[in-house]
Design a protein around this nucleic acid. Structure first.
Lengths: 226, 226
DNA sequence: TAAATAGTGTCTATAAGACACTATATG
DNA sequence: CATATAGTGTCTTATAGACACTATTTA
């Protein structure tokens, strides 16, 4: 065992979703000091008797604060040091998670109600956050934007079935640039990233669109940029 | 403060260098239980009174075990759980570091002398390692290989001045494939990754080669693959 | 048949791979 | 001048971007 004092060990989660404008992060009102009542990333201590590993801590935090059960979750980076937390030398293993907007709406008590336990804030209009949570959110957004250029990551912001136009729109909102329709479709289809759902189509007063699902339920990378 | 027990918090470092065959990792003989006398990654407890953050822990470990002062160092991943260390629930923030082979030769007591404190082992011929250190080395090698396809990372395995042929050779040994000379030179020069050292040339019984150095002392990424 | 969105064909620009060529040093 | 390595020119191939075109639905 360690004969000297050990860092405070926590896990923080950057839960991202897509709002009209673009990426948004879910923040929780802190129930305890330090920074009680302030908005911050959902997080918590690692419980060595309950959590198999830090990913389990992250899933437990997400279940408790946002009622989510299995969003796409990846480890981001471990932030550490003596000055980031007023309680002392601390270490936070940060994770990011992506969830379709629809799954958040079904969580009770959501949206920007004053004093609600949880709010969704666009990442380009973040308030000042306690600890180094501002830097953690920025790191998560940078990571998601860069991985989006060459992987299926943005698809985890959509529910099971989607049209190619919807998928392109999600990519565009995540990375913040417009993409050419023909190039996007070639790319996505050549990589067999998605599979058409036979017979499933979505329409309006126009030609109906084929519905697709991800070919693999897990993250898939492809070779070149979009 | 935490009212419950807290994980063991350590830092482990995957120190990589280039041997004739390819990438090699520096392993240290463990001085203490568990696994005393066994080869493992150099590592140590986080000292909250001495280390500013986990990167400082990693630098302290490298200085103590390999006498290195400022190699290229990046955080890799945080490994955690109740079963990876017989002492109990533990969390290891893993880093990887790259160092030119020449700087290791100057460290006293190195090379594969039996019972030496430190040995260099090719990553493709690793012995069984204690804890989950085998998985940590594999993760580091994967990360270095994939970043090498689009960044200046392999250059940190070379000392200050090098020829383009030497640089290409390092890239080839790291990623394990042959590269076309003309394409490689176009790529590296177009990205302004390196700067010629005026007047500096290296020769033999043939046309001498221009010597270069990295344009930026820090890691630089470029847009497309090699 | 107008409107709207789905989906395709094709030209161009860029960059990587292949590979042969020229350049310049030593012995 | 033979040899060895440095360094370049250029053809081919793959692919992203631009953009116009065709297809299919409802009202």
């Amino acid at each position: 065992m360690a004969e000297f004092s050990t860092p405070i060990a926590t896990v923080d989660v950057v839960l991202l979703t897509l709002m009209s404008g673009g990426l948004a992060v879910v923040l929780a009102v802190r129930e305890r000091p330090p920074f009680a009542e302030r908005l911050a990333l959902p997080g918590g201590y690692i419980h060595v008797d309950r959590d198999d590993d830090t990913a389990a801590t992250a899933r437990r935090v997400l279940a408790a604060k946002a009622g989510l059960d299995a969003p796409h979750l990846e480890q981001l980076y471990t932030f550490s040091g003596g000055v980031r937390d007023p309680r002392g030398w601390s270490l936070s293993v940060a994770y990011y998670a992506l969830v379709p907007a629809g799954r958040l709406d079904r969580v009770p008590g959501l949206e920007a109600v004053p004093a609600a336990p949880v709010v969704v804030v666009p990442v380009d209009a973040l308030p000042q956050l306690p600890f180094d949570h501002g830097a953690i959110v920025k790191a998560a957004v940078d990571r998601v934007r860069s991985k989006s250029a060459y992987s299926s990551l943005p698809a985890f912001l959509l529910d099971g079935a989607f049209t190619l136009a919807e998928l392109q729109d999600v990519y565009e909102r995540v990375i913040g640039t417009r993409l050419d329709k023909a190039s996007f479709r070639r790319k996505i289809e050549d990589q067999s990233l998605i599979t058409p759902i036979p017979g499933a189509r979505r329409g309006g007063a126009h030609r109906p669109a084929q519905l697709y699902r991800l070919s693999s339920p897990t993250l898939t990378s492809f070779s070149r940029a979009l």
